[in-house]
Design a protein around this nucleic acid. Structure first.
Length: 593
DNA sequence: GCCGTTTTCGGCCCGACTGTTTTCAGTCG
């Protein structure tokens, strides 16, 4: 397996954890964490940078030492420092750091005093009451560790955006009604629309003596209240999701909302900027000396720092502050920019509703067009359509288009990209053999995109968040291929997929490849998932003009037909006779005449 | 370990809460 950026980042994270437990210089630890974060965000493959002799020192936070370690990991798959650290401490102690209340010092104390090496060791020691023998751990701490390890050993560590969105909206509504509460908002990674959320952060603007904290902890059913003070509380819901609430005075709300939205890296950069200007930024405002000069709104904070407002999805320290300074921030795509959806299913394959119901639901959500893309026969599981059934569906779509106003249905199909690159037409997707080697997977996709009918690569990596890793392929090559062929990439808006992810979206944008934000709806309510696709697209800096389905129908048709004009390479013609027959019976470029 | 209109050393974001101390360390965000 070739080493990818995330592998090197993982090595650096583990080094940081182990160094921290050892009690190393905290700024040295931070250097490794910063480097890991930078690698995770980097849109360029680090191995290819090394291969072409690029200067790694030029990367932010990378000096001679870390540049050397990156090369070492990429070349050998190992890092001598990490190997050394692992002999000094059991590697699993890094797991202990994920338990609330346990940081580096306690992890070290637990290891030294009780020989605790793993989460299971910790859980057992807590059950047996042995933790209290460790200096600095009393009965409460022991109990909270017992509860945390119990949850940790069975509950998922991160939650899908859809679940946390629902919880956040419900709590927001609940707390907004409490007397003395002026405003409640969600913050943290949910607001930044990260694809998964570890815990839910909320911020409230309150008058003095508001009962907001009491109402908030009551949401935990009295079971798991981690902390509760006048301005801050943390609870654990039945789902295991931790929710943190901070309450601040009205005049500090913007600064607090900004602060608890993060990301941490963005906050640090803002604080550094404040310091350079002789100011101080904290969650209560921007201060010159003791005088507050901003903080009631987020915009006021940015303004005081000489910056325009930066959208939450951009706050990842991926160049947004430089872009703000040069007035080149993207005008991010919004849900209302979407005019249509280019990937949806009906009862004909594995969807749950009729053509009519899906059309009506799409129209009710303000969409002007909807591509019906049921599965092709290869996906027997999904009762895929053969040529005959597809022809019947096309007739029904024509009939419906003639009869119904307010929405136009486009005729498509979601075809399987076979292992050797054959496909039918329009929306191509991988549904099997996720485990091919990087070279074979890349070749498979490139050949599929050579097919004259190919329009959109659906859920490109085929990942399922927390369930199945994405296919390994050379994404930059696939994106360049899409540009050459005039094809498009999908950002599948299903919260379990969000595929392409944010970094990949930005790569597509940089290469000038349009992205289709599609619901992949299998029932009418799933059109509402488009919001999560929008969130991910905004994290990827996409503007309306970067998105395929913000186009009016006429413009969309020209773009789609553009994929049909290019002659396929000779070796692909006649690849599969049955497939070509299907292709002739559907015209994706002029779907409804 | 990185970085530099304070440039090769001395900084590196800052405040709240808890548990366990008996005045504060550790952790967290």
């Amino acid at each position: 397996m070739p080493i990818v950026n995330a592998d090197v980042a993982g090595v650096f994270e583990e080094i940081a954890d182990l160094l921290e437990v050892q009690g190393a210089n905290s700024f040295r630890v931070r250097a490794y964490r910063n480097a890991a974060h930078m690698l995770g965000e980097l849109g360029t493959d680090i191995k290819s940078m090394i291969d072409r002799g690029a200067d790694l020192d030029a990367l932010p936070g990378i000096g001679p030492d870390l540049a050397g370690k990156i090369c070492e990991v990429v070349r050998t798959g190992h890092c001598a420092l990490l190997d050394e650290l692992r002999t000094q401490l059991p590697p699993a102690v890094t797991e202990l750091l994920k338990i609330p209340g346990i940081g580096a010092k306690r992890a070290r104390a637990l290891h030294q005093a009780l020989g605790i090496r793993t989460l299971q060791d910790l859980h057992r020691a807590a059950e047996e009451g042995r933790l209290r023998t460790v200096q600095g751990i009393g009965p409460k701490m022991q109990q909270s560790i017992l509860e945390a390890t119990t949850i940790r050993l069975k509950a998922p560590r991160r939650y899908k955006l859809s679940l946390v969105t629902q919880v956040g909206e419900a709590l927001r509504l609940e707390l907004s009604g409490v007397p003395g509460v002026l405003e409640v908002q969600v913050a943290g990674s949910l607001r930044r629309q990260r694809e998964t959320v570890g815990d839910l952060d909320m911020v409230a603007a309150v008058e003095r003596d508001s009962a907001v904290m009491d109402r908030f902890v009551s949401a935990a059913d009295g079971r798991h209240v981690l902390i509760k003070g006048p301005t801050r509380a943390s609870i654990v819901l039945a789902s295991g999701l931790q929710v943190d609430l901070r309450a601040v005075p009205r005049e500090s709300f913007g600064a607090a909302w900004l602060y608890f939205t993060g990301s941490k890296a963005h906050n640090i950069a803002l604080r550094q900027r404040a310091r350079e200007a002789g100011l101080k930024l904290n969650e209560y405002g921007v201060f010159r000396g003791d005088r507050r000069i901003a903080g009631d709104t987020e915009a006021s904070v940015y303004h005081a720092l000489g910056l325009p407002f930066i959208e939450p999805e951009l706050r990842e320290q991926r160049g947004e502050i430089d872009a703000a300074l040069s007035h080149s921030l993207p005008a991010l795509v919004q849900r209302r920019d979407l005019r249509g959806d280019l990937h949806a299913h009906t009862r004909e394959s594995d969807g749950r509703e009729s053509l009519e119901a899906m059309a009506a639901a799409a129209r009710a959500r303000g969409l002007e067009y909807l591509a019906i893309t049921d599965h092709s026969p290869r996906l027997a599981l999904a009762h895929g359509l053969d040529a005959g059934r597809l022809a019947q569906q096309i007739d029904r779509i024509d009939e419906l288009n003639a009869r119904v106003d307010g929405i136009v249905l486009l005729k498509g199909i979601e075809v399987d990209i076979l292992e050797d690159g054959r496909l039918d037409l329009v929306v191509g997707a991988i549904h099997h053999r996720f485990d091919l080697s990087r070279d074979k997977q890349t070749d498979r996709l490139l050949r599929a995109m050579d097919h004259p009918c190919f329009s959109i690569l659906a859920h490109p990596t085929a990942r399922l968040i927390d369930e199945r890793p994405g296919c390994d392929f050379d994404l930059p090559r696939v994106i360049r291929k899409a540009r050459e062929r005039g094809c498009f990439l999908e950002l599948n808006a299903h919260p379990a997929r969000l595929d392409l992810n944010d970094v990949a979206c930005r790569m597509a944008k940089d290469e000038g490849v349009l992205v289709s934000i599609a619901s992949d709806a299998h029932s009418s309510v799933e059109f509402d998932n488009l919001r999560f696709g929008i969130g991910q697209a905004r994290r990827g800096w996409l503007e309306s003009s970067d998105v395929l389905n913000t186009r009016r129908l006429g413009a969309l048709r020209s773009l789609l037909s553009g994929t049909m004009d290019k002659p396929p390479p000779a070796h692909r013609v006649g690849a599969a006779v049955n497939v070509r027959k299907t292709a002739e019976s559907v015209d994706p470029g002029t779907p409804s005449r």
